[in-house]
Write a protein that binds this DNA or RNA. Sequence first.
DNA 1: TTTATTTTACCGAACGTTCGGTAATTTTTA
DNA 2: TAAAAATTACCGAACGTTCGGTAAAATAAA
Lengths: 186, 186
Amino acid sequence: MRTQKVNPENVDLKLFETFSELGYDGASMEALAKATGLKKASLYHRFPNGKKEMAKHALEIVEHWILQHIVAESANKNVPASARLKKMIASVDELYNGGANNCLLRTLSIGTDANAFKESVTNCFNLLADGFTDVAIELGLLPDKAKQNARLINQTIQGSLVLTGATGDKSYFKNSLERIPELLTA
Amino acid sequence: MRTQKVNPENVDLKLFETFSELGYDGASMEALAKATGLKKASLYHRFPNGKKEMAKHALEIVEHWILQHIVAESANKNVPASARLKKMIASVDELYNGGANNCLLRTLSIGTDANAFKESVTNCFNLLADGFTDVAIELGLLPDKAKQNARLINQTIQGSLVLTGATGDKSYFKNSLERIPELLTA
DNA sequence: TTTATTTTACCGAACGTTCGGTAATTTTTA
DNA sequence: TAAAAATTACCGAACGTTCGGTAAAATAAA
C-alpha cells in the first residue's frame, strides 16, 4: 500500500549525503532506501537505471550547487570581489559542515565503478577552479597565477578534508579555508 | 587441485594494492582472490578473521613502509638532511607511482567499516608527519613551524592524489612533491 | 607419516534489480 | 463541474547474483 508522499528534494539531498558518506560501493540500496525514506522499489521508479543513475544524479546536485554558490557568486559584480570570495568560502564551509562531511567528488573517485563518474567529477573540479580563478583575477592576480592558485585551492580543500575525515582533527579543514584569501589576493 | 605455491610477500602487496584501488567496500573477496592468485578459502586460511583482518594487514604494510622509508630515513644521520629529504620524497613518488596509485589511508577512511581503521590510519599520518618534522628541524625550522608544515605536507600530498586520481592530471601530484623542500627549509 | 597449505564445494545473507499491484493524483471527457 | 480515464508514486515480495565465510577433501611440504 502507498503510505505517504515523500518530498523529492529531500530524496535528492539524502542520496547526495549517503553517497558522500559511504562512497559508491558502501552505499547499498538498503542504506539509500533507509536514508531517503523510500523503499528500494520506489527508488527504482525514480531512477530506472538503478544505483549508477542515483549516483550520477547526486553528482548533478553537486554541479548545481557549484554553479550556484561558486560560479554564479564569483560573477556577482554587485559586491566587491573580496566580499564575494568570503561568501564563496563560507558556502564551502557550510557544504562540508566544517570538515565533518566527506566530498562526493572524492568518494565517487574510488571503487568498482569510478570510471563511470570520472568525467562529471573532473567537470565539477574545473567549475570550482574557474570560479576561484575569476575572483582572483579581480583581486589583482595575473590570469596564469590566478588559475594556478585556484587549482591549488581545490587541492588544499580536498587534502584537508581527507586529513580531517581520517583523523577527526577539524583544524586541517578550518586552516585551509583561512588560507584561501591570501592565495587569491595580489 | 593445488597448482602452485604462492609467494606470500606478493599476496601482501596485492592485498595492499587492491584495497588501495577499490576501497574497503569495493574490494570484494573475489577481487582480492583474483589479485592475489589465492582462492577465497586460502585467503581465509591466512586471515582467519576475514576481510577486515586483510585490510588491517594492508594497513600494517603501509605502517611498515612509513617506518622504513620515512621515519628511519629521516633519522639517518649519515647523509645531509637535504639529501635525506630528497630520498624521502623519491620514496613517496615511487609509492604512489607518480600519482597513478591511490592512497590506502584515504580509501580506507570512507565506507561502511571506516571506524575500524581510523586509529591505524591516524597513526600512519602521524608517523609521516613526525618524519618530515624531524628533517625540517634539522633544516633550520623552529619545532612548531616544522610540525605545522609537516602536517601541511600530508595534506598537500593527499589533496594532490585526490585531484590527480579524479582527473587523471598528474601535474597535481608532481607539483606537490616539488613544493615540499621549500616548505621544510628555513 | 604427520603437518601445513590450498582446493573444491557449499552455505546463509545481502546485494542490486524486477514485477505485480494499489493508492493517490492528474488529465480527459461529458 | 463531475465522472471516467490515464498517469504517477509508492510498496511488498521475490528475482537471480554476489557477498563474506566455512567444512571437508586434496595436495604439498616436513
